[in-house]
Simulated assay, not measured.
Amino acid sequence: MDSLRSSSFCRWMWYMSTERKRPALQTVPRGARLAGQIRRLYGSNKKASRPFWICLTGFSTDSPLYEECLRMNDGFSAYLLDVTEEDCFSLFPLETLVYLTPDSQQALEDIDPNTVYIIGGLVDESIQKKVTFQKAREYSVKTARLPIQEYMVKRQNEKNYHSEILAINQVFDVLSTYFETHNWPEALKKGVSPGKGYILRNSME
C-alpha cells in the first residue's frame, strides 16, 4: 500500500465489500451489478480533480465477485487501488473509521482527509434493513448518513416510492462532488437519481 499512499492519484477513501448468501436460482451472475458499480466508481475517481484512495477490503481474489470484476471491467487487475482479504476493522484503528449507512442518526457534515470512510457493497442485492448499521455497532465504529434529509424532500410519484439507499458508485459521486465543491446540494444532485423519489429543497424541477 505504500506506493498508493505516496501517489498523487489517491487520497483517503475506503470501500468494503460485504458478501452474503443468495438463493441458488439467479438470472444475473453473482456480483455482476456490484462489479459494474465498482467500474463506475473507479471511472468517477479517475476523472476527479481531488481523487480518493480506494481500497477493496474483505475482497478475495478467488471469489465469484473478483471473477465478475475481471470479466466485466477491462484492465481491472491493473486498477490503481488496493485489494485485500482483510476487513477494514482489523486494518485500521477503529477510532479513524466512519461507516456510511442510511440508518445512522448522524448526518455527514464534512469530509475529513484523515478519516477512513466505509461504503458497504453487498453481493446479495436483497435489502436487509440496518445490516450495515448493525455491522458498525458490532465494532463500536462511528456511523454517518448522507445529508439527504437535510437538503432534499420527498417528491410525489405514482408508486409513492422514496429510498435513501444508493448504489456504491452513487454514494461515491456524492462524496467526490462534495470534496471538490463543499456544496451538499450540488453533491446530492449528482448522486441521488430522480428514481429515488427525492428532490432538492426549493428546486424548480
Rank of each mutant, 00 (worst) to 15 (best):
M16I: 02
F76K: 06
S17E: 10
I118T: 08
A107Q: 10
Q149Y: 06
T18L: 11
L65S: 06
S126P: 00
L94D: 03
Y42A: 07
L91V: 09
M152D: 06
V83N: 02
F89S: 10
S90A: 11
G36W: 00
A107N: 13
V28D: 12
G121H: 07
L81D: 05
G43P: 00
Q149N: 13
P29K: 05
S17Q: 13
S140P: 00
P23C: 05
L91S: 04
E85H: 05
I38H: 00
Y15H: 08
N114Y: 08
N73P: 03
L80V: 08
T132S: 15
D103Y: 14
W53Q: 11
I119N: 02
R137M: 13
A24C: 03
V116I: 15
A24T: 12
E85R: 13
Y117F: 12
L100V: 14
V123P: 00
P93H: 12
I119R: 01
L34Q: 11
S126I: 11
Q149T: 10
P113H: 05
W14R: 08
R50E: 12
V116Y: 03
L100D: 02
N45Y: 01
G75M: 08
L41Y: 01
L34V: 15
A144F: 04
T143G: 08
L122T: 07
D62Q: 12
A78T: 11
S126L: 09
G31D: 01
F133K: 12
R30Q: 13
K129Q: 13
A35E: 03
Y15P: 00
Q128V: 14
E86H: 10
A144T: 05
F133G: 09
P64I: 06
L91Q: 10
N73Y: 03
L56G: 06
F92T: 04
R22M: 13
V153K: 11
Y79M: 11
S17T: 14
G31S: 08
T27F: 05
D110G: 02
C69N: 05
T18V: 14
C88A: 13
Y139C: 05
D82S: 15
N114C: 09
A144V: 04
T96A: 11
